[in-house]
Computed example of a mutant assay.
Amino acid sequence: MFENASRIAADAAHALSETLAKAGRTVADNCRRFGGSASDDAKLFRARDAELADSHRNMLSHNGDPTPIPTLIAETGWHTDSITLRAHTTDTGTVIPPRTWSQGTANAPPPFHEGLFASRAGLTELFRMNIEAGVRLDRLESLTPINPHFNCHGYTFSRNGEAGWLAGRRVEDILSDNGFREISATGTAVPGDVVIYRDDGIITHSGVVADTTSEGIQVISKQGPLSVVRHRLDEVTGMYGPDVSIHHTARPGGRFLTPVANSAETAPPWPATRP
């Protein structure tokens, strides 16, 4: 509608490279055991749904006791029904079309692949990979169920995640077009300010300042296709990189992009073919 197929594919590849490159380096060895084609991997993950509850590799320390990751995920819950997606614009008129979960995860760079994003078992594996990369989802406060229809940037810059899998390459333009200024002193941050994580200069993650306390800044962010969680400012740098900046805008709409009128569409079902 707004971009041709090649542009969409390029966005998808670029976005996954940005968001997952650091995690890929961290967990590559763990993922090599899932070799084979994307379709084979998807079938494998679906077949292993029942196994995961008893799998030793999903046993991690949680509040001092070993708890299976599937149990932790069951406590978080799932929201996989279709949502409304919309195109959005920046204040300078740049149109950003919505991206579906399948577009956002297409051409995922190794060691990531379609199978990780296309089933509950695959997202269970991503949950484990996050923990091993330093984002201790087993210890963070989950604020929403797992929802694969939008990513961290979709959460940060659109209401209800309606931008879907917003590409990281769009974020610099959003910050510039919508009047964000970087806050030099973290002590001046206020709730609603945007937090940007970078690794080697590449934007890998974003979130929103939730609160500032004597113990530091609390952030709310979405972990890829997983849940929205609350965490300390530096609690996810092991996966997303040590370069963290905070940005403020005084625009009336705050951090949210402006929805394009009459652009609503229904996100395709997840998974595309239910196991």
Rank of each mutant, 00 (worst) to 15 (best):
G224T: 02
R48S: 11
L137D: 02
D29H: 10
G115V: 04
R139A: 15
E172I: 08
I146F: 03
L52W: 15
F2V: 02
D54P: 02
V219E: 02
L166F: 00
T212N: 13
S61V: 13
G187R: 04
A5R: 12
P68D: 04
D193K: 06
E172R: 04
S221M: 05
M239N: 07
M59W: 12
T273Y: 01
K43P: 01
S184F: 09
W101C: 09
T186Y: 15
A50H: 13
D193C: 08
V208I: 14
T258L: 09
W270M: 04
G254M: 09
V190F: 12
H231D: 06
L257C: 05
V236M: 08
E3L: 10
D173N: 14
E215G: 12
N147R: 00
D243E: 13
A121K: 00
I8A: 06
A167Y: 02
F180Y: 13
A133P: 01
L233Q: 03
I146Y: 00
H62E: 12
L44G: 01
T212P: 08
E172K: 01
L72T: 06
G36R: 05
L175V: 07
A118C: 09
I202F: 10
R251S: 11
R86D: 04
W78R: 03
P68R: 09
D29M: 08
P275C: 01
D81V: 07
P242W: 03
N63K: 10
T144P: 09
K22H: 12
E162R: 10
V236T: 11
S142E: 14
T90D: 01
I8E: 11
F256H: 13
T84Q: 13
P66Q: 11
D211F: 05
T212D: 14
A250F: 08
E18C: 14
T80E: 15
S158V: 04
P68A: 12
H247E: 02
P191H: 14
P145D: 15
P275G: 00
A28N: 12
L166R: 05
P252N: 04
N107C: 09
E162M: 08
N262F: 13
F34I: 07
L60E: 11
R139T: 13
D243F: 00
I131S: 01
L85S: 03
D41T: 13
T213F: 15
V195S: 01
W270F: 10
T89G: 04
A12T: 06
P98Q: 05
G24C: 07
G241M: 07
E51I: 06
I202A: 09
L60C: 09
V236A: 11
A108T: 08
E51T: 09
L123G: 02
L85G: 03
Q223Y: 03
G207I: 00
W165D: 03
F127D: 06
T67N: 08
D29Y: 09
R159P: 08
P252H: 07
R139G: 14
P269K: 02
C152M: 03
S245W: 00
L20I: 01
N147A: 10
F157I: 01
E125S: 05
L140R: 02
R198C: 09
